[in-house]
C-alpha cells in the first residue's frame, strides 16, 4: 500500500470534498423546494397531481446514473438544445449533475413528505379546525410542522443516500471525492489506495451527518418520547420503529 501517494495529493482530495459537499447540499436544498409543493399536491387532489405523480414515478423508477447520463450525454445530442439558452447550463458537467441530483432528491423527498403528511393523526387536524383555523393556517401551522418533524428520520436517510449518490458525478468528468481517488489511482497504476481514501472520506462525512440528524431528531421528536438507544431509558409509548407514524388512540 502506497498511501504516501495519496497524501502527496491531499489538496486534490480537499477540493474533491468541497465539490461533493457543495453538490450534495445544493441538490438537497433544491430538491426540498421541489418536494414540498409536490408532496402537498400528492396528498390532496389537485390539477397537478397526475403530473407530479409522473415525475415521482420516473425519478424513483430509474437509476440516478441513467438520469445523469441522459441529461449530460443525451440532451447534448440535440442541435436545438445546443443552440438554446439552456446550453449555457447544460454545457457544464457541474450543472448537469446538479439538475439530475436535485430532480432525483426532489422525487424521493416528495414521497417521504407525502407519507408523513398522510399519516398525520386526524385529531390534530380536527382540533385545529375546531379552533377555527383556516385551511391555509391548518396546513402551515399544524400539518407541516407536525409532518416535517416525523419525516426527520427518513429524511436523514435521504441525505446520506444523496451524499453517496453524488459519486455519479465522477463519471461525467467532475472531480469529486471519487473522481480524485480514481485520478490518483490512474496516475500511479494503483488499485486500492485512491478508492480506500475516498471511502474513508465518505465515511467521515456520513457519520457526521448521522450524528447531526440524531441531535436534531432528539430535539424535535422529544414530544413523541422516543428512546434513541443511548439514554438507557425504557422505550416510551411510541417505540423507535414506529417513530415516523405515531398513532393517536
Amino acid at each position: 500500500m502506497k498511501f504516501e501517494l495519496v497524501f502527496r495529493h491531499w489538496d486534490l482530495f480537499l477540493s474533491g470534498v468541497w465539490v461533493t459537499l457543495h453538490l450534495t447540499a445544493l441538490a438537497l436544498i433544491i430538491g426540498f423546494m421541489i418536494a414540498l409543493p409536490a408532496a402537498l399536491s400528492l396528498t390532496r387532489r389537485s390539477r397537478f397531481s397526475p403530473l407530479v405523480r409522473g415525475y415521482v414515478y420516473f425519478f424513483r423508477g430509474t437509476p440516478l446514473l441513467v438520469q445523469t447520463y441522459l441529461i449530460y450525454y443525451g440532451l447534448a445530442q440535440f442541435e436545438f438544445v445546443r443552440e438554446s439558452w439552456a446550453w449555457f447550463f447544460l454545457r457544464e458537467a457541474w450543472w448537469c449533475a446538479l439538475i439530475a441530483f436535485s430532480l432525483n432528491s426532489g422525487a424521493y423527498t416528495a414521497e417521504i413528505l407525502r407519507g408523513a403528511i398522510a399519516t398525520t393523526p386526524k385529531g390534530e387536524i380536527d382540533g385545529a379546525k375546531a379552533l377555527g383555523l383556516s385551511e391555509r393556517q391548518v396546513t402551515w401551522l399544524i400539518l407541516l410542522p407536525s409532518a416535517l418533524r416525523r419525516a426527520l428520520p427518513q429524511y436523514g436517510n435521504e441525505v446520506v443516500f444523496m451524499l453517496h449518490g453524488t459519486v455519479v458525478a465522477s463519471i461525467i468528468t467532475i472531480q469529486d471525492i471519487l473522481g480524485v481517488g480514481r485520478t490518483v489511482n490512474a496516475k500511479y497504476y494503483i488499485a486500492y489506495e485512491g478508492l480506500l481514501s475516498a471511502a474513508a472520506l465518505y465515511m467521515v462525512i456520513t457519520f457526521t451527518l448521522v450524528w447531526v440528524f440524531r441531535r436534531v431528531e432528539k430535539r424535535y421528536l422529544r414530544h413523541l418520547d422516543i428512546d434513541f438507544g443511548q439514554t438507557g431509558k425504557k422505550p416510551g409509548k411510541v417505540a423507535g420503529a414506529d417513530a415516523g407514524v405515531p398513532q393517536m388512540r
Binding site: Y73, A76, R82, A93, I171, T173, G179
Partner: peptide, 27 residues
C-alpha cells in the same frame, strides 16, 4: 499534458468514446 502543459485545462474521461461525444457536443 501533466508534464509539459500543466496549465492547459483538462477533462478526464473513462473511455475514448466519451471524449468524442463531448467534442461533438462542444464541451
Amino acid at each position: 499534458m501533466d508534464g509539459e502543459m500543466p496549465d492547459v485545462e483538462l477533462k478526464l474521461y473513462g473511455t475514448q468514446d466519451e471524449v468524442y461525444l463531448d467534442l461533438t457536443a462542444g464541451r
